[in-house]
């Protein structure tokens, strides 16, 4: 579904990704783990198309298309979804207004019928209740004054409503207590399907207790240095990053 080949990317002229290779098949959940500064967030932003994240070499192919040639909104419409590590506060724009606009933009691009206000409210109600998001929160300005947990639950709700094919979860566990983590993870797990893939980016193994990956990769200095099954995450938890790195990369 997604194939990353020899990806090099710079931010402010500094090379952050340094020949990254990663192939994720349909229905698979891959985890990328790495210490601070290893390039985890850069990878997620490059996939979503953020300005200032310059790809200097390599390719990213999504369902046979050149992902890097697409604008951020075209990627979203094609089915890429990035759950932000730090969801952006947007004053003055009500969550509900934003969500309806986004869902209809994506549906329109996919040739599906746009929802009217009534249909959308009904649909959103089911999703938000599953995540414990109040109706009041939907009326508030997007992410403004939301707690860390509320922001992350809001990201997952957006994901559920937009029904992407490929989800990138960037440090979705950061800032969450155990209860919130369970709710968020349950929401993510409910989305697992044979035709939907996920890239779970995390510093800690904790999230992977709740979202079980098929493959775990260790990212260091902008490239994948080791890959393995779910056991690799537990090994990492026990030994630390230094303990699991191949000698050459450490």
């Amino acid at each position: 579904m997604l194939e990353i080949k020899n990806l090099h990317a710079t931010v402010d002229g500094r090379e952050i990704l340094n020949g990254l290779d990663l192939t994720i098949g349909a229905g698979q959940v891959h985890a990328v783990m790495g210490p601070n500064g290893s390039g985890k967030s850069t990878l997620s932003y490059v996939l979503a198309g953020r300005e200032g994240y310059q790809v200097t070499e390599g390719s990213v192919t999504f369902e046979g298309r050149d992902l890097l040639a697409l604008k951020p909104e075209e990627r979203a419409r094609a089915g890429i979804f990035l759950a932000f590590q730090y969801p952006v506060e947007v004053p003055g724009v009500a969550s509900a207004t934003f969500l309806k606009t986004a869902v209809n933009a994506v549906r329109k691009a996919r040739g599906e019928k746009e929802y009217d206000a009534f249909e959308f409210l009904k649909l959103a109600k089911a999703k938000r209740e599953a995540l414990g998001i109040s109706e009041e929160m939907m009326k508030r300005a997007l992410n403004v004054g939301f707690s860390g947990g509320e922001k992350k639950r809001n990201e997952v709700m957006q994901m559920m409503l937009l029904e992407p094919k490929f989800m990138v979860l960037d440090e979705t566990d950061s800032g969450l207590d155990v209860d919130a983590l369970r709710v968020v993870a349950a929401g993510v797990n409910a989305m697992r399907r044979a035709d939907r893939s996920m890239l779970v980016i995390t510093h800690y193994q904790r999230l992977l207790d709740y979202i079980t990956p098929d493959v775990v990769h260790i990212l260091s200095r902008g490239r994948i240095v080791r890959s393995g099954g779910p056991d690799l995450a537990r090994e990492l938890e026990a030994k630390g990053y230094a303990g699991v790195m191949p000698v050459a990369a450490a």
């Binding site: 979503a48 953020r50 604008k71 969801p87 952006v88 934003f98 937009l162």
Partner: peptide, 10 residues
């Protein structure tokens, strides 16, 4: 970027 990453055009 946040809004565009959710499918809204510029």
């Amino acid at each position: 970027f946040y809004l565009r990453a959710r499918g809204l055009d510029e």
